[in-house]
Design a protein around this nucleic acid. Structure first.
Lengths: 173, 173
DNA sequence: TTGCGAAGTGTTATAATAGTACATTTCGCA
DNA sequence: TGCGAAATGTACTATTATAACACTTCGCAA
């Protein structure tokens, strides 16, 4: 059970060895799939891999283009179904502000994530949001509302895109 | 400066005199428009009125239908432009989870709203989310991310739809 | 008061995102 | 081996959102 730390989250905005972190996450995802009897079929696995390779939020049709090119089905439901599966089982997240999807970077943690989206370079970092979820829970309680899930998406500027800081955005998009 | 209180927010989920609260909000919006030199033109004003009359989140095309029927333009940009204006100036909010828009119920308050969306009856309550915004701010700081805006949307069950509580949903939709 | 530039409105057309319905195949397992 | 459930592939459609451009209206300065 590796809980995400602030430095994990910060790492998402820094240059790092994608293939390494992607590999680790993929292994964790496979472990979870085995443990819970999820069927990580070729399409689903490939979609997760694509998300991990890109290491950013991708639209369903971006994914679909890749799938087509690799000989999978070429109609929208192919992508949406795989994405729905991944999201439902916590292996990917939907980023509503972007109408896009990103691989979950902590699939072995039961977490309530928040997302930090850079308006400049559209990099996305996923962060544990337990305090935020608790605050929301409390606010809900005060008005008699029972919360199932909370979407928390912050838009702003990532460290790499701050003027006077690191020069070039990591994900030009 | 009327700050929203938990009981204001709770009221959103209870039967109440819409025409009264809508009227008050409309007046507040007009006040703001005058004060800030915003042009609350017929289309814009009408869109805000529609949102207030319905007192729930409406899709852009729902709005467009009403506008058509009332002799305004009948192409999507007519609705989207008015909605964009209202959102930009804080007179309405976009609810991303629903791909919909709702009138801001506290247009005279500078606020960071959170939304509570009932999965059963799709009623939406707007609540002040200062603690959540602060928590997000802190989380962002920890990773060097500067937050511009945060979207907070909770999905769950409103008081009226709780089993064993009040019987009928207020907004059947 | 005229007339200029900016803002607003309306229209056509199209893009981008998402889902329904149904036939076929594959998988797990009795 | 073969049954039922799950997964896949396809055609088709629905929903949400923008781009581009012509025309009108508004605020304001000469």
């Amino acid at each position: 059970m590796t809980a995400p730390t602030p430095s994990d989250t910060a790492a998402a905005f820094e240059r790092h060895d994608h293939s390494h972190c992607a590999g680790a996450v993929m292994q964790a995802a496979e472990g979870r799939a085995r443990a819970e009897g999820l069927r990580l079929t070729p399409v689903r696995r490939r979609v997760l891999e694509i998300l991990l390779e890109e290491h950013r939020a991708l639209g369903a049709y971006d994914i679909l283009d890749r799938l087509k090119a690799e000989g999978f089905g070429h109609q929208p439901p192919v992508a949406y179904r795989a994405l729905d599966f991944l999201v439902e089982h916590g292996l990917a997240h939907r980023i509503r502000r972007l109408n896009a999807f990103a691989a979950c970077m902590h699939p072995d943690t039961d977490h309530a994530p928040a997302f930090f989206i850079c308006a400049q370079c559209s990099a996305v970092a996923e962060s544990a949001a337990t305090p935020l979820r608790d605050a929301a829970q409390a606010a809900g309680l005060a008005i008699g509302f029972t919360i199932e899930r909370v979407t928390i998406e912050a838009i702003g500027t990532c460290p790499a895109c701050h003027p006077g800081t690191a020069p070039s955005p990591q994900v030009p998009s």
